[in-house]
Simulated assay, not measured.
Amino acid sequence: MLHSVCVRAISAHLNAHDVGFIPGLAGVACLLVSFFSQNAARKGASPYALAAMA
């Protein structure tokens, strides 16, 4: 849902020929970086998992 709203907003600014799409692109880039780095961080084993089992 958020993705389609961002894409529509970026598209509207591009069609209006102004530079308002730059913050939108930066936001989408930050969203993608956050999503992929969060999933990569979850792949590793937790160092606290063994302490909880003991």
Rank of each mutant, 00 (worst) to 15 (best):
M1G: 14
L2T: 05
L2S: 09
H3W: 13
H3R: 13
H3F: 07
H3N: 11
V5A: 14
C6T: 09
C6P: 00
C6I: 13
V7W: 12
V7K: 15
A9N: 05
A9M: 09
A9Q: 07
S11C: 14
S11R: 15
A12S: 13
H13I: 09
H13E: 15
L14P: 09
L14Y: 14
L14K: 15
L14F: 14
L14A: 10
A16C: 10
H17W: 08
H17Q: 12
H17R: 15
D18C: 04
V19N: 05
V19K: 06
G20M: 01
G20A: 06
G20H: 09
G20D: 04
G20C: 04
F21A: 11
F21H: 15
I22K: 05
P23G: 03
P23W: 12
P23D: 06
A26W: 03
G27Y: 00
V28Q: 03
A29M: 03
A29Y: 02
A29I: 09
C30W: 02
C30K: 01
C30D: 01
C30F: 04
L31A: 01
L31C: 04
L32N: 07
V33I: 15
S34W: 11
S34K: 09
S34I: 07
S34T: 15
S34Y: 12
F35N: 03
F36G: 05
F36Q: 06
S37V: 13
S37D: 03
Q38D: 09
Q38A: 11
A40G: 10
A40P: 01
A40R: 15
A41K: 02
R42F: 07
R42G: 07
K43W: 00
G44S: 13
G44E: 13
S46G: 03
Y48P: 02
Y48R: 12
Y48Q: 11
Y48L: 14
A49C: 05
A49I: 07
L50M: 02
L50H: 03
A51N: 08
A51C: 05
A51H: 07
A51P: 02
A51W: 10
A52R: 05
A52Q: 05
A52H: 00
